[in-house]
Design a protein around this nucleic acid. Structure first.
Length: 829
DNA sequence: AGCACGCCGACT
DNA sequence: GTCGGCGTGCTC
């Protein structure tokens, strides 16, 4: 990988003609470059172009990495094939190409895998070999007796298809051992093979009317004049399908006008796009607060620089309005904007507000789009016209040519980090690289900034970072009060309900129709920590400052459950009694949304509720539907999980009940305090956004926990100071960096031994650059019947992340174990 | 990943 | 002898 990258980093920046090109061929298992001849009709070929090339007997997609005038040694001219087609040209600006290289390098991922996430499906799609009947029916029947059985089977299949044509792959799957049969059919000239061109999702074509003649011309009939004037009023250019509706005219009339030269009818690519719109369209011109005005002014000062701005605004402080105003400025300067949000489906309000303000210059890009929609949006993004892309993390790779601003809203959110397939990129980091390359500012917005961002903005002397604060709500309302309820006391006083006395009272006092409530439950998930119901004590690892996990697969020789730290593999027998208070009430934790709604229905039958969790929002558009219906007052209580924490703005909500916060607090990783603070602060911030003040009730078994206290006092600075101290002590990020190596295999013993062997290799190669933690089994060891182990590498801050030679490590895995590298992981499960 | 090539065992 | 199994190695 290293050598490949250093060889292409000096890619040609000129468009000088070249005899050959080096192509990164899109074929799994290949990492090298292949040289192709440039045919004279494709002389304009450039680095970054997507091409089709012959490869073996197939045609594959690939990317031109550089132009060369000399053949690599050991390659004869006769071996070189020619590029067959340039599929797509000119969208990889030099900057963009550098960005992809940087991602490939930093996240230790083959360049092609990076390119694949940056491109929409279909651009690199490989061609397929197809087999077609070419002989006449009569000849086929004549030959049939002499055919071998597989040939006959193939023939029958082909004859059954209307076109007499199937992909080669389909036929070989359907007919076992088809090789000889296929050969026979070919040699008898009954069938032919051919290569199907890589199919791009064809953009939808639509007819557009363009006014070319003067509508006041006297030769026109009055009806014709009317129609043409209507077209002129619409700007002289319009989709035929739209015009038909508003002018109520017929095709024959338009054809007549076209043949007389008054209009032109042209086919144009219509880009399919997500147009879902909802009720949050109203465009309220709020009076800006002084802080907002100052923030906008500061950001505008920083345009055309690569500054990073941390916009720290409390919940309800009007960050969105700051974005909107700034974006308007960028658009006025004919530049485009990239706006990243955690999850699009969860924030219909945001997209609605953007659509209301900027109309069809807003383009939504996320993974839930269909392939066609994604392809079309991607084509749209290539255009130089000023536009706004609102998208989730992968939209950081939007190929906008005139980028003027990048915004990451809710920048602390974990969904900006990819942990599943490599590259395991963090959109915030990629955004910072992109901001440097494009020389445009990056705005990070949050009510609860990530520790990393806070530290960089507040503590560092880096002149590139700027800190802007919006400490007050736009309505002039205070932040909601947060009451912490000690659930141990509730238990003692005989309240066995999941709702504390205070929460019950608050729900009873809710005035349906005028006030609404939100009940928050931490998603049950795999919160496998053990905690004492009597005193709140949790069992922690003595070496790692994380909670111990109960492990399904771990029992000791006496069949006692074992607790394990999945950072360092520390093992302990689960005590029968709480080590702190000797109570036998030492239990696992968990509570579901369903349980809450049941209890709610029982205790408060007069309150109408809606459930908002992954069960009820599985369908497309369900988020929007539930939020809309709640916003319109069709329910009094919204019961949900994590999803509720993301920027929804419902002015009627006056009460937030955090039914249980402890599951979040005790996630087995070093970030649990930070995440808890962020989620709880955000959830509490959902209330009191309208005319009436808000109140949050936080139920916990750990009322004195510093994180809970920080949420109660809403003192971000204080919390972050403490937390940074703790991180520093353990050299956890941002005072150190980590790399997580994940190993999976269908064979449990094999992964364990292989992971152990790799750990030994890593220790041998460490040379003091990093510390090796593990190997340990993953918290959820078996997923989809694959067993997962992991190794953590911990780097001191001063040492850049350097991995030892990964090629030898990959080689030593064998083919039954696969490994992936997660650089600066957020998710340790 | 495909797909050739090539080398072994069981059938007309 | 030949067909068909499968391991190995190459694709500019």
């Amino acid at each position: 990988m290293k050598s490949l990258q250093s060889s292409i980093i000096n890619h040609s920046k000129t468009t000088k003609m070249a005899d050959w090109v080096e192509v990164l061929v899109d074929c799994p298992g290949l990492q090298g470059l292949y040289t192709y001849q440039v045919p004279s009709d494709l002389a304009a070929i450039q680095a970054g172009d997507i091409v089709s090339v012959p490869f073996g007997n197939r045609t594959l997609g690939g990317i031109v990495v550089r132009l060369v005038n000399q053949l690599p040694s050991g390659l004869a001219v006769e071996q070189i094939k020619a590029v067959s087609e340039v599929v797509c040209t000119g969208f990889f600006s030099i900057n963009y190409w550098d960005l992809l290289l940087q991602v490939a390098d930093y996240y230790h991922t083959p360049l092609l895998q990076v390119i694949r996430i940056a491109l929409p499906p279909g651009v690199l799609s490989r061609s397929q070999r197809r087999v077609r009947l070419i002989a006449k029916k009569q000849l086929i029947e004549q030959s049939r007796p002499q055919l071998n059985p597989t040939a006959r089977q193939l023939l029958t299949l082909l004859q059954a298809s209307p076109e007499g044509d199937y992909t080669w792959q389909y036929l070989t799957r359907k007919v076992r051992n088809s090789r000889s049969g296929m050969q026979q059919l070919h040699s008898l000239k009954l069938v032919a093979s051919y290569i199907e061109r890589p199919k791009l999702a064809r953009p939808k074509q639509q007819q557009v009317l363009i006014l070319t003649g003067d509508p006041r011309n006297l030769e026109l009939t009055s009806r014709q004049k009317e129609v043409l004037l209507c077209l002129q009023q619409q700007g002289g250019e319009m989709l035929w399908s739209e015009f038909q509706k508003i002018a109520r005219t017929s095709k024959s009339m338009m054809d007549q006008l076209a043949s007389d030269g008054y209009v032109q009818i042209v086919d144009r690519e219509i880009l399919r796009r997500d147009q879902s719109a909802g009720i949050w369209q109203e465009h309220i011109e709020h009076q800006l607060t002084a802080d907002q005005t100052a923030a906008i002014a500061k950001i505008e000062q920083l345009l055309h620089t690569s500054a990073t701005v941390l916009l720290h605004g409390v919940t309800g402080s009007g960050k969105t309005e700051v974005y909107l105003r700034t974006i308007q400025t960028i658009l006025d300067q004919q530049q485009s904007v990239l706006m990243l949000v955690p999850e699009i489906g969860l924030t219909p309000q945001l997209t609605d507000r953007f659509r209301a303000r900027f109309g069809d210059r807003v383009l939504v890009y996320h993974s839930a789009l269909s392939d066609g929609e994604r392809y079309d949006s991607w084509r749209q993004m290539l255009l130089p016209q000023p536009q706004i892309i609102i998208g989730t993390r992968s939209a950081i790779f939007a190929p906008l040519p005139n980028l003027g601003l990048i915004v990451l809203d809710e920048e602390h959110d974990g969904s900006f980090k990819q942990d599943q397939p490599m590259p395991t990129y963090h959109a915030r980091l990629v955004a910072s690289w992109r901001s440097t390359l494009a020389n445009c500012p990056l705005v990070l917005g949050s009510a609860t900034p990530a520790l990393e961002s806070w530290q960089a903005a507040a503590d560092s002397n880096d002149p590139n970072w700027h800190y802007l604060s919006l400490p007050e709500r736009v309505t002039g309302r205070d932040l909601p009060t947060v009451d912490v309820i000690d659930m141990r006391e509730e238990l003692k006083s005989g309240n066995r309900s999941i709702f504390s006395q205070s929460l019950q009272t608050a729900l009873a006092d809710l005035r349906p129709g005028q006030e609404q409530a939100i009940l928050f439950i931490h998603r049950r998930g795999h919160s496998t920590f053990v905690s004492c119901r009597a005193c709140g004590h949790t069992l922690d690892c003595p070496h790692c400052d994380v909670s111990l996990s109960y492990h399904q697969h771990s029992v000791d020789s006496n069949n006692q459950p074992l607790l394990r730290c999945h950072y360092c593999n520390y093992l302990a027998v689960q005590p029968k009694r709480c080590p702190a208070c000797d109570s036998p009430q030492l239990k696992f934790f968990g509570s579901g949304t369903q349980k809450v709604t049941e209890e709610l229905a029982k205790s408060f039958p007069e309150l109408r509720y809606l459930r908002f969790d992954s069960d009820t929002t599985r369908n497309k558009g369900a988020h929007r539907q539930i939020l809309t219906s709640f916003a319109q007052g069709e329910a009094d209580v919204l019961v949900g999980t994590q999803m509720l924490a993301k920027g929804i703005d419902l002015p009627q909500v006056t009460l937030v009940g955090i039914v249980t916060a402890d599951g979040l607090l005790n996630m087995p990783d070093y970030r649990s305090a930070e995440r808890t603070f962020q989620v709880l602060t955000q959830v509490a911030g959902r209330c009191g956004r309208g005319e009436q003040p808000g109140r949050a009730i936080l139920q916990t078994y750990n009322p004195e926990h510093p994180t809970i206290q920080a949420v109660r006092s809403q003192n971000y600075q204080q919390f972050i100071g403490k937390e940074l101290g703790a991180r520093q002590e353990w050299a956890y990020p941002p005072y150190g960096r980590m790399v997580l190596l994940r190993f999976t295999s269908s064979e449990p013993e094999l992964v364990e031994t292989v992971t152990g062997r790799v750990a030994d290799q890593l220790i041998a190669a460490a040379a003091g650059h990093y510390q090796v933690l593990g190997p340990t089994p993953a918290v959820v060891m078996r997923v989809a019947n694959r067993y997962r182990w992991q190794i953590m590498l911990k780097y001191p801050l001063a040492i850049p992340i350097q991995l030892p030679d990964m090629a030898t490590i990959y080689d030593s895995l064998g083919d039954k174990v696969s490994m992936s590298i997660d650089v600066e992981p957020l998710n340790f499960l």
